[in-house]
């Protein structure tokens, strides 16, 4: 997988979804690769991929941004994380990573994507058994940061 193209797919998908669905601007920051990213505090949508390549994608932000994004989706004020916020972040993850998946398929072949799992809490860590780095792109939305992470590896086929 061509990493610059993967980063571009993440940037274009995320800015497109945030702009179209929420009428907000997401400004991409410096992309990075990390094997063991630091623990998370907030709300995370996790999706899995399978096909000739396998792995996971994550859309993550702090509580405050999660509430702000859900408020924009629902057009009503949301001040604390509730089922609508978890559902909304799950759906944002679905749209962002679904669009990333479509762009990557020309490089890695057909991919199937799971429905999102949403995790909310403090100091939780993500880990993958794939011997690959997470590709991480932060996005500035006002004063808050949204992060999209992707880890994909070719599936080893039996000889």
């Amino acid at each position: 997988m061509n990493e610059p193209e993967a980063f571009a797919a993440i940037r274009e998908s995320t800015t497109g979804v945030i702009s179209t669905m929420l009428s907000l601007e997401a400004c991409p920051g410096e992309a990075s690769q990390q094997h063991d990213p630091p623990p998370l505090n907030g709300v995370m949508a996790l999706l899995s991929f399978t096909g000739d390549w396998v792995g996971s994608g994550v859309l993550y932000c702090h509580e405050k941004l999660a509430c702000r994004l859900s408020s924009a989706m629902l057009l009503s004020e949301v001040t604390e994380v509730n089922n609508d916020v978890l559902d909304g972040i799950g759906e944002l993850g679905n749209m962002v990573l679904g669009n990333v998946k479509d762009r990557l398929e020309s490089m890695v072949g057909a991919l199937a994507m799971s429905v999102p799992t949403v995790v909310y809490g403090r100091n939780f860590q993500t880990r993958t058994n794939l011997h690959r780095n997470w590709l991480i792109v932060p996005f500035q939305i006002g004063d808050d940061t949204l992060e999209v992470r992707l880890c994909l590896s070719p599936k080893i086929k039996p000889a």
Partner: peptide
Amino acid sequence: TTEGTEAKVMEALSLGAAGYIRKPF
């Protein structure tokens, strides 16, 4: 749906879908 590849669109249309909108819309 978020599924926007040509193959998926064709599959839906061949099953009789009347239209296809990609998320985000």
